[in-house]
Amino acid sequence: MAAGGDHGSPDSYRSPLASRYASPEMCFVFSDRYKFRTWRQLWLWLAEAEQTLGLPITDEQIQEMKSNLENIDFKMAAEEEKRLRHDVMAHVHTFGHCCPKAAGIIHLGATSCYVGDNTDLIILRNALDLLLPKLARVISRLADFAKERASLPTLGFTHFQPAQLTTVGKRCCLWIQDLCMDLQNLKRVRDDLRFRGVKGTTGTQASFLQLFEGDDHKVEQLDKMVTEKAGFKRAFIITGQTYTRKVDIEVLSVLASLGASVHKICTDIRLLANLKEMEEPFEKQQIGSSAMPYKRNPMRSERCCSLARHLMTLVMDPLQTASVQWFERTLDDSANRRICLAEAFLTADTILNTLQNISEGLVVYPKVIERRIRQELPFMATENIIMAMVKAGGSRQDCHEKIRVLSQQAASVVKQEGGDNDLIERIQVDAYFSPIHSQLDHLLDPSSFTGRASQQVQRFLEEEVYPLLKPYESVMKVKAELCL
């Protein structure tokens, strides 16, 4: 049975990233139509530049190519590739079939990587351009969430054990800070992308030097003109047959890092959902379990974690691919890159769409948070109580021993009897502590235990987050809708 299948058929496997999760716009960027249309555009740009620099290419040939950029006979191309065992030459023939007058000058002087690699770089750039505003929107939604809850005390956790208090907004800023680093890295790697350009079979530009009869300047002009037509500021000066596969490492490393950030955020949300302090959106008709109707599973956060793990592992592909590119190139890269580049971007696209949807509907339960604080705060307040007693004339050592005994009794009630923490009640009825009984409410005010959390939130948002989001103001209103 021949390899390949009808990918629109229910009898043929289709990647869930495309069929179930990723956005239509990201799927289109990695589609065959987008790819092969870009090949034709690159052939047109090459012909236009070659004509401008004096090669015998007519206006009629150029116009014929322009008129057929979208006229792609995919069936013919597939048949040609089956016959020739070469995808680029299959599309040269297919393009030439609908451009008979231009057929002889299509791909003039070029090698397969002229269309293959340059198209990949265009796709990487455009895919990054799709991700950047999506990530900015996630940051914006979380920034709104953090600002609104900047002063809401909550129990902090280290080692997932109760620690000092923080605020809900401050905790959210930990998430935002990681995503801001990801946004900066995505922008950097996007701006650092260079075009492969017009380089020939081993990167020496020998074929173009021959076409222009040894004119170095025209060869350099050709490279520059096509690079500018493709919208790049610069091209690699040095290439082998391909652009260095280190570029793929750079791009997928940034995406993998984004995956790590999203995994951490969504894990926190899942843990908070278990504590009943916070939940992701839950639709009115949504079913959490087929057997347990009360369940409210954090399905979206779980999906993000599941896909983020996949995204983090994909960076190993370009690392290994770059390491086995012998001399000017081997074909070890080809099949692998067809999979890992598309999957990385479709996965990143999915987790950003999902995280935006989550961040637009996060639900906080202040009463649950308050109750958990009441359970733990008495123990945390013991040092403040000791200091207040010393100020009232008591002995630190005597007070410490009193607190120690009462704390152990209260802990026994919590752990052995399943009761509430009654340390404060014990202190309130103990005559030894009568000098500070009137101060206990103040000493137990949760806001006095959150330090500068709310001020940190305000400063972080104003100095770091809002300036970073400013270039994306025009796209901030787009909502994230999930079908599944």
Rank of each mutant, 00 (worst) to 15 (best):
A3S: 07
D6R: 10
H7W: 09
H7Y: 04
S9F: 14
A18L: 11
F28D: 10
S31M: 00
F36W: 09
W39M: 15
W43L: 09
W45H: 01
A47T: 07
P56A: 09
T58M: 06
I62R: 04
M65W: 00
K66H: 02
N68M: 12
L69N: 15
M76P: 02
A78L: 10
K82P: 14
V88T: 10
A90K: 13
H97Q: 05
C98V: 10
C98T: 06
P100N: 11
L108I: 10
T111D: 00
G116V: 05
L132E: 08
L155Y: 09
G156I: 07
Q164H: 03
G169L: 03
K170P: 07
C172K: 02
W175H: 00
D178K: 04
M181R: 05
R188V: 08
V189S: 01
R196F: 01
V198M: 13
T204K: 01
S207P: 01
F208P: 13
L211W: 01
F212W: 03
E213P: 04
D223R: 14
M225F: 10
T227D: 02
F232R: 10
T239F: 15
R245L: 09
D248L: 14
S253C: 03
L255E: 13
E280R: 08
G288C: 02
A291F: 10
A291P: 07
M299T: 12
E302N: 00
R303S: 09
S306H: 01
A308Y: 09
M316P: 03
P318K: 08
S323F: 13
V324G: 04
R329W: 02
L331T: 15
A335D: 04
R338M: 06
T347Y: 07
I358F: 15
V364I: 01
I373E: 11
Q375S: 11
L377H: 11
F379H: 15
F379W: 07
T382W: 14
T382P: 04
E383Y: 07
K391S: 08
K391Y: 03
R396C: 03
R396Q: 15
C399D: 03
C399T: 09
I403Q: 06
S412R: 13
E417G: 13
D422E: 04
A431K: 00
P435W: 07
P435H: 09
I436L: 06
H437S: 11
Q439S: 11
L461E: 02
M476I: 02
V478F: 08
C483M: 14
